[in-house]
Design a binder for these strands. Structure first.
Lengths: 176, 176
DNA sequence: TTGGAAAGTCAACAAGACTGACATAAAATG
DNA sequence: CATTTTATGTCAGTCTTGTTGACTTTCCAA
């Protein structure tokens, strides 16, 4: 027997305050869960294709992304942002350094630290990867419109872990 | 320099067609990309904790989820939905069947097929996992409000691969 | 100066993805 | 009826990426 779902159009309610709680049915939530799952697949698909040709993986992409965004960050900072162990990150970093995509300089103030920078070659790959990902994001944003994008960001932020959200929000102010 | 985000309420524009293209700067897109990354971590965090205590992984959760949603689906359908190879899926299914969480019955019409069902025990774990995930989704939805949720879903759908989106949209109509 | 803490590296292992080859049973087709 | 195709399962091997444990180097404070 078919269910009678509330329907996505039943949302043009008068109050955006959350009065109408019909959209919080388990069925609606399940759809949101599946949308996240499928969308994340699309989100990573384009960079993954590029990476697989270079014998790199998603972890390499993530490292390149955050080193590009915050040049000079330390290994410790990076592994905190990525949420992985230092050993796991280290393997990825080692190949990136060996291949001349990332440069690791001894920290200025604290010589135990290593500060990470992209080389020209590393910057080039990062640009290629992120441009592929941005292209999809851009298309999705265009398709959905500015209002939807604002909602998209709101929900994503609310879905993050507390500490991560604080981290993410503080990163918002960071310049390129 | 800090960005001025459009803001969820300042969006009462005349056209939802995407006239205002300011939100498509690379900086805005990069934030969307990072929001996806961090949010997905939160999205999977709660089930992951439960699973790790049972020596299961995310792959087991995904299988349980889709078997629960479409009882009797075939192995082939499931691996198409999950986007993995049969060898990969088989390893996961085997343990779930051995542990008495999933039942595999010979297909009715086509006896080559195996139809998958959750056992009572499997249903219980699925409920525990999905309830943890729904709780976070519910909280995020409440925090963001119905209008944001609609936008969230719109952008996610636009981000999926073509074929996946078609699949996802068709699944919307499916009954439990 | 010495001992602990912090940052990073090396080694070994596990989960879960992949490919390729092969087996079996059932359905479909000529 | 014989052959081919389809659906599934299995074995073996590889790769990425996560883990823990043990170690070195460096800093800092008692």
């Amino acid at each position: 027997m078919t269910i009678d779902r509330p329907g996505p159009q039943g949302m043009n309610d008068t109050s955006a305050s959350g009065e109408n709680l019909l959209f919080l049915t388990d069925e609606q939530l399940r759809k949101g869960i599946e949308a996240m799952f499928f969308a994340y697949r699309g989100f990573t698909a384009d960079p993954d294709r590029i990476l697989s040709e270079l014998a790199y993986g998603r972890a390499h992409h993530r490292a390149l992304h955050f080193i590009n965004r915050s040049p000079g960050l330390t290994v410790n900072t990076l592994l905190t942002v990525l949420g992985v162990t230092k050993q796991s990150l280290n393997r990825v970093l080692r190949t990136l350094i060996e291949d001349g995509l990332v440069e690791s300089r001894v920290g200025r103030k604290d010589r135990r630290e290593r500060q990470l920078y992209l080389t020209a070659k590393g910057g080039e790959l990062e640009r290629q990867l992120s441009e592929a990902q941005r292209a999809r994001m851009r298309a999705a944003y265009r398709m959905a419109g500015p209002q939807a994008v604002a909602g998209f960001r709101q929900v994503l932020e609310a879905m993050m872990d507390e500490q991560i959200r604080a981290q993410y929000l503080s990163l918002k102010e960071v310049r390129i």
